[in-house]
Amino acid sequence: MPEMIATRDGFGKALLNLGRENKLVVNLEADLGKSTKSILFAKEFPDRTINFGISEQDMITTAAGLAYSGKIPFASTFAIFTERAFEQIRNSVARVNLNVKIVGSHSGLLTGDDGDSAQCIEDLSVYRSLPNMVVLSPADAVETEKATYAMAEHVGPMYLRTGREKIPVLFDANYKFELGKGVLLRDGKDVTLFATGPLVSIALDAAKLLEQEKIYARVINIHTIKPIDKDLIIKAATETKAIVTAEDHNTIGGLGSAVSEVLTEYALAPLERVGVKDRFGESGKPAELYKKYGLTAEEIVKHAKKAIARKRV
């Protein structure tokens, strides 16, 4: 069994390390530091932490003022509550191209029994639609940690998606995170599985199931939803001629849409999308929800076979 760590823990660890290394980093939170894990930073650096209480619009716009003044603000809360400040993110952050780092935890059905008000299934979609925004959706705690360091390096507005539940650790400490580049995890010739976030380890499971049926799947981890790794998608479409996307997000607007946009414009190949099929979730254990809503290895296998059957001869 692989080690299990939540991606929010990867963020919390990285933010603390950034605080120690870089005095420009400021931590903004909205009464959810214990949940997002920004509390680790807050405890060690109270002077560089601002807790806004429950006022996300104020938090995001204050982050804009801090960024304008040369600071590197990380503003974190639940993914869904970052959207409370969507218009502020649009007008005061993205539009002005300010160096604000927004971190949304508790994304997707993985959030579990808190239910559908907290299960954010559209954040990738809404933030992807904003010019200047970089959108990150890492696959495990290690990748999240490295992505957080990359956020402090990159100048410009960024959104990082993290999750509540523990998921398998896929990468070791030597893993190198490269912004905007997909990560080939397993090669194959028959179909490509593009996955993001917690669906990456599930896609790897699906590839193993497919192999038992002599179907060889390529598995690519897409941690940067925007800018999407266009070249890697074109290559996969050209070489394997069938594509599946998998994400804990609405199939509208997220990874599935981003890949689809590249395929229709540059390299037509049949695409099957695994994700939350344009509906809201409900309370339940993450594993139960993944089963009920079709975010499983078996479901990816089914979609892979469909995509292969639709291949152009």
Binding site: Q57, T61, A64, L66, Y68, P73, S92
Partner: peptide, 21 residues
Amino acid sequence: EMSAGSLGQGLSYGNGIAFAA
């Protein structure tokens, strides 16, 4: 000092500058 236009945001933004000071 601010790209404004959407009302209600300038004081939060100004607070950010004041915190930076």
